[in-house]
């Protein structure tokens, strides 16, 4: 890990996708941060194998 270049995050302007509590997107907008809220809903199935299979197909 120490040989890796540090992450460039500190050089970037923050742009956020918020998944979950809307309030956290609101607080980012209060700080004039670019934020996209995901309209999330629980997956239809929690069968992990099936979800992984779908991921590999998409």
């Amino acid at each position: 890990m120490t040989e890796q270049q540090p992450s460039p995050l500190f050089e970037q302007t923050l742009s956020v996708v918020n998944i979950g509590i809307d309030l956290f997107a609101e607080t980012l907008r209060q700080q004039s941060v670019d934020v996209v809220q995901v309209q999330w809903s629980p997956p239809a199935t929690q069968n992990e194998d099936l979800m992984n299979l779908l991921d590999s197909l998409l």
């Binding site: 970037q12 918020n18 979950g20």
Partner: peptide, 9 residues
């Protein structure tokens, strides 16, 4: 341009 995900599910 999104570079950060804030997840609270």
């Amino acid at each position: 341009a999104i570079n950060m995900a804030c997840i609270s599910l």
